[in-house]
Design a protein around this nucleic acid. Sequence first.
RNA 1: UGGCCUGUGGUGUAAUGGUAACACAGAGGUUUUUGGUGCCUUUAUUGAGGGUUCGAGUCCUUCCGGGCCAACCA
Length: 553
Amino acid sequence: MSIKEEKERSLHFIEEIVEADLKAGKHESILTRFPPEPNGYLHIGHAKSIVLNFGLAQKYGGATNLRFDDTNPVTEDTEYVDSIKNDVKWLGYNWVNEFYASDYFDTLYGYAEKLINKGLAYVDESSSEEMAEQKGTPTEPGRRNKFSERSIEENLRIFREMRDGKHPEGSMVLRAKIDMKSSNMLMRDPIIYRIKFAHHHRTGDKWCIYPMYDMAHGQSDSIENITHSVCTLEFVPHRELYDWFIDKLEIFPSKQYEFARLNLTYTVMSKRKLKLLVEEGFVSGWDDPRMPTISGLRRRGYTPKSIRDFCDRIGIAKRDNLIDVSLLEFFIRDHLNKIAERVMVVTDPLKVTVTNVPEGHIEECIIDNNPEDENSGSRLVPFDREIYIEKEDFLEDAPKKFFRLKPGGVVRLKGAYIIECDEVIKDENGEVIELKCHYIENSKSGQDTSGVRTKGVIHWVSQKHHVPAELRVYDRLFKEENVSAYEGDFKDLINENSLEIIKGYAEPSLKEATQDKKYQFMRNGYYVLDDNSTTEKLIFNKTVGLKDSWNKK
RNA sequence: UGGCCUGUGGUGUAAUGGUAACACAGAGGUUUUUGGUGCCUUUAUUGAGGGUUCGAGUCCUUCCGGGCCAACCA
C-alpha cells in the first residue's frame, strides 16, 4: 500500500477507539493479543484477526502477545501449538511474549477462591440436565437451587476437594453467583470451573479442575495488561461477563471489542468443519491446498503478502459478510504477477514437426524470466525440430477471432520463431495427431526482420528435452457459494471434483525448480512446487489460473 | 415470541448533517512476443414508511430483514 493510500484510508471503528484512548491518555501505548485455542490449524479467518491485532500494535507503536487459550486439555495438543506459531511467523508477525492461559492456572485458581470469599461463587452438584432446566430460556428467567445457599466455608472446602481430586468428573462445578434472571443467558450463574481428569499438554497432571473460557480469557488479558482485547462478534454477550469478573476481581481493566469474522464463498471457516474434512478424508490434511487454512494456502502457493493485502482490503466492521473468493484470488495474482518466473509447460500436447529445422539441430532461445521485473534476467530454452504445442492452440476450422494456429496460418512460438502450418496429420478416427510446419526465416524472437506479423503467441516445449511433471489443479471445495446458508449437512455440498491431476510437459529449466520460487506457466496460471515433489517426480500445485478473456466467451 | 449486534451497487468497505466514493466482480475499448499485465471507459447502491432540517445514508420514530445467545467448548 502506498503512503498516500494509507493516509487517505479512513479509520475503522477499532482504530478510532485506539486513537481516542491514546489521545485521552488512557494508555501510554497499546498491547493487543492473538489468542488461538490450540485445537486446530489456523485459517484465513484467523489471518484477519492476526493482521488486525498485530497491525494495530504496529500502527500505534504497541506490541502483541501470542497467547494460547489452552483451558480445555481434552481437545488441545502441542501439534497445533507448533503449527500456529509457524503460521503466525510465516504471515510475517512477531509476538513480544508467548504465553499460555495455562501459565495462569495458579492465579486463576486464586481468583476463584477470591470470588468464593466474596460470596460470588458456589459449588453446584446439580447434573447438567438439572442446571439446563433451572437456567430458564431467553424468555423465561432461571432460578437458583439449594446449592447456591452454601456458606463460604463450605464452598471453599468443597472447591479445594475438587482441586485435590476428591470428586469425580461431572459430579460438581464451580459457578459464579450473578443473576439468574438476566436477559443475558451468560450471566445466569455461569460455570467457571469444571473437573476434568485429563492430561494437559503443558501442566501435565497437575490439575484436575480447569477454568472455563469466561473464567480464563478476560483474566488472562488483565494479567498481561492487554489494553484492547479484540475478538469476533459471537463474543459480544460475553463482554458483560468479562467486565463483571474484572470488576469483582479488582484487576487491570482490559476492554473487549468485537468485529465481524471473515466468511469466504465456496468454503467453510469453522474449525469443527475443517477438522471433519481432514478426519473423514475429504482432503489430505490440514495443509491440503484446497483448504482455507494458512498452511493450505501456503502449500497452494499463496504468499504472506497477498494474504495481508487481502485482510487489509476487506476491512473491519460489525456486519456479517461473505467475501467473494475472487477478491483473494485478485491479491495473489497481483503479487505473483510481479514475482513469478515465466516458464513454458504444455498440458495437452500436440506434436509439431518444424520441417525446415535439420534433424539434431538445437537452437537456444533467450527468454525473459519476468517481463514485469527487469532484474529477473533471462534463460535459454532449447528449440528443435520436434516440439509440443497445446492441443487447444490449433483449430482446423477456426473462427475469425482465433489468433492461434490454423491450417495455412502463422503463429509466434514464444521466444522462438514464427511458424506456418503446412499440413495436418490425422489418425484413423479423424483426430489431429501432428502438424507439419515450417519456421519463417529471420523471424527469431528479438531479431525478427521477417516483416511477418502474427496476432497470436503460443507456448511450446521441445519434445526431446521436456521434463515430465505432475500438475495438481484445484477447484473450489464446495459447490455452493454460501455453505453456511445450507440447512442440511454441509458435506452434501462438497465438490467431489475439486482435485484434478494432469500431466505436464515442462521446459527443461524446471528440473531446477525450487520450493521458494513461484512460477507462471505462461498462458495457463501460477504454480508452485508441492511439498512432496522430488527430483525424480516433479509435482506442481496450481495456485490460481490466469484471467482468461477468451475461454469465457 | 426476551435480550444483544446489524442493514449502503452483485460482493466488501467508506462517506462522522452538505455532490454517495474506493476495491473486487461484470461489460466495453486500448496496449502487448502471455487472449496475462498495464491503461481507459462503463453498468450498478443507502431495507420500507413517517418525522426533524434549507439540506438526512447519517438524527428521531414505526415497521421489515439478517445474525448471535439457553455447551461441564472457545
